[in-house]
Nucleic acid binder design. Sequence first.
DNA 1: CTTGAAATTAGATACACATCTAATTAGATA
DNA 2: TATCTAATTAGATGTGTATCTAATTTCAAG
Lengths: 191, 191
Amino acid sequence: MTETLLAFFKALAHESRLRIVGLLAQREHSVQQLAALLDLKEPTVSHHLAILKEQGLVTVRAEGTTRWHSLDTAALETLSRRVLETQQPAAPLAADEDEARILAGFVDADERLKEIPASRRKRAVVLRWLMRMFEPGRRYSEAEVNAYLKSRHWDCATLRRELVGHRMLDRDAGIYWRLPKSQWRDERLEA
Amino acid sequence: MTETLLAFFKALAHESRLRIVGLLAQREHSVQQLAALLDLKEPTVSHHLAILKEQGLVTVRAEGTTRWHSLDTAALETLSRRVLETQQPAAPLAADEDEARILAGFVDADERLKEIPASRRKRAVVLRWLMRMFEPGRRYSEAEVNAYLKSRHWDCATLRRELVGHRMLDRDAGIYWRLPKSQWRDERLEA
DNA sequence: CTTGAAATTAGATACACATCTAATTAGATA
DNA sequence: TATCTAATTAGATGTGTATCTAATTTCAAG
């Protein structure tokens, strides 16, 4: 997904290729023509066209030994629409409906924690939500953990202690890591 | 125009920056957080953020010494819409209505010349249309001129002679260039 | 089958830029 | 003021890739 988008941007992130796209948007061109117009050698143009073809942005029609290249505007449209989709603010919410309601009460529009819930059950929901920031297997310095938690609430120290206390994060010698969910001591397991 | 588009693509044509945009699409982050998540050093992240800010894709909010970065989705939208505009097939047509009708008769959907008009007046219209391919001030080798004309009609030699005869192109020692319109000898002037 | 033209492929060189460390700036706190 | 933290700037290094020349392929025409 981000893979294909990256390739798309890379394909267009060069002056020569962008000019080629502009020329092909007007009409089809041969390699020679493009080389003359861009003041490049033919192999260079071939190289650029290969990259654009790889992204499906350019199609070819052979006529004798010359190859007429045109722009596939449909592909260009598809891909640039995908850029627009990228910006969707990403589903902030929850595992099941109960949790969703609780989170909605404590998390504001900016995805920050309004306050740390006093109720143990609600606090556990919030802690599970915070754990989404930590990847399994990755190791975090205490500074990293703090920076991360601080993006959600100013009192990162309390949150960090809570996460450790619930066996969601573990620590040794200043290094933190995420524990598997099976070891988490949250309200669901205590109930 | 192509200038700003190029900068836009360059800004997003790198894995780290694309991932930063993805993260900022979810919520605001500090430099430290991004560095930790991307496994990069802070100066590197600063560098990438500077590039994104230059394109107006990222905005900053200071809070003490930490700076919270967010994605400006409006800018992203504006720019990706501009990509869609690029592909408009470029107005093929004409100076005044008379010319438009004549061209429509001789130029096919692929922007190629169906035949060279026998009538002097119509031929002049077509030659003026062909001259749009040649930039004022630019020098063209005979091969370039031929390649260009061939993209419109197989008989590039005849077209080339006609253009020279009408004082639209001039030549010396195998090099061609476009003459100013004031010197063109087309039907409008002869009439 | 040879020749010629258009394009691609291979390989070498050179330039752009991503990343790092070290040093500096800016803001907060004691 | 001195100190600490977050971030940026400066400068060095290394990687990726754009471009070139030379060689090879593909197709058409003698």
